[in-house]
Design a protein around this nucleic acid. Structure first.
Length: 325
DNA sequence: CATATTTGACCTCC
DNA sequence: GGAGGTCAAATATG
């Protein structure tokens, strides 16, 4: 029973709980860092207290993050290369079963395909298989705001190239949702996708939901010094020439987004981010990439298992509005 | 001509 | 059956 290449049930449950906690902590962090005083019933000038709270929450969050990291969060489709730490996982709380079990991978129902009957070309099965596979990919979302003044100040090192493959009207949403996938899906079997949903209220806010992490070479070698025939529409961060059709502009905005840490303290307000937050910053390849400010201890995990394999365990570095699933 | 986007159809899940 | 997600043919773009 445990022979699956997936996580054991305990791990899934543990993961689920961790993610829940992490999510809650993130939200709390957002709330704390947010509006300085608006709705507080009693406004005390205790900035020191606020600061302490912030620190505490930060600690909680990073603790969660590390725990998740240790669990090798996500069940990457090709993890087999990784010396799965499954045997090492403590699983401290044996016994008492938390509440909602399968919230990560869904029901552990047997592997049988639904296979509606005839007409099952290999192509069909691929579809089903991929569908299942996709569902197990890690997923997280971020609220992102474009900077209306600077037009789009995209990530100058937008490593990843996305290709739009669909658009859907979402019930209750004013704007359609766009679906993007990594350009190298076919060539490098990279299953990273993202979907972009424009906020109803604030037209400058987009919610970007990522699923899966890049396993394509882009993820590892951000900028090949020499020949890179691909990427050409990457220069979209130029000023939004009015000559551009508004549609193009919008699309550009969607592809190149600028994260804004709204509530956070004060200083650094706007900064750009590579389309997919998770970095593969293992020291191997001129690991001069992430260099996260020391305030985020998450990526200090240099001693991760194997720098060569595609570990899906990745985390968005920034901002509070992150939501994990 | 090659590659990206659009868009209606199709699939899966709830 | 409906909603969300994906496919793929048609179309656009450089």
């Amino acid at each position: 029973m445990e022979g699956k290449d997936l996580l054991s049930w305990e791990q899934k449950t543990l993961l689920s709980e961790l993610i829940n906690g992490f999510d809650a902590a993130k939200k709390l962090q957002a709330r704390i860092g947010e509006a300085p005083s608006p709705s507080s019933s009693f406004l005390s000038p205790a900035t020191a207290v606020a600061e302490t709270n912030e620190i505490l929450v930060k600690q909680i969050v990073s603790s969660y993050e590390r725990s998740l990291l240790l669990l090798n969060w996500s069940s990457s489709p090709t993890v087999q290369l990784i010396p799965t730490p499954a045997t090492v996982v403590p699983v401290a709380n044996s016994g008492s079963v938390p509440e909602s079990p399968a919230s990560i991978n869904g029901s552990p129902r047997s592997e049988e395909f639904v296979d509606g009957g005839g007409s099952s070309e290999s192509h069909r099965q691929d579809y089903i298989f991929n569908s299942k596979k996709r569902k197990m990919l890690p997923k997280w979302s971020e609220k992102v705001r474009i900077n209306p003044e600077r037009g789009l100040e995209g990530p100058q090192d937008d490593v990843f190239s996305w290709r739009k493959y669909g658009q859907k009207d979402i019930l209750g949403a004013k704007f359609p949702r766009s679906y993007y996938r990594c350009t190298h899906r076919g060539t490098q079997n990279c299953w990273a996708t993202k979907q972009v949903q424009r906020s109803d209220g604030d037209a400058t806010v987009f919610e970007v939901t990522y699923r899966g992490t890049h396993t394509c070479s882009q993820a590892i070698t951000p900028r090949p010094p020499t020949a890179s025939p691909e990427k050409k529409r990457e220069d979209i961060r130029v000023r939004p020439a009015i000559t551009q059709k508004p549609k193009d502009l919008l699309e550009s905005l969607k592809s190149n987004l600028t994260v804004r840490t709204d509530g956070l303290a004060d200083g650094k307000d706007v900064f750009s981010f590579p389309d997919t937050p998770p970095f593969y910053t293992y020291g191997t390849i001129n690991g001069d990439f992430g260099h996260v400010e020391s305030s985020t201890p998450i990526f200090d995990v240099v001693d991760w298992f194997n720098p060569m394999v595609e570990i899906d365990t990745t985390f968005p570095t920034f901002l509070h509005e992150t939501t994990y699933y």
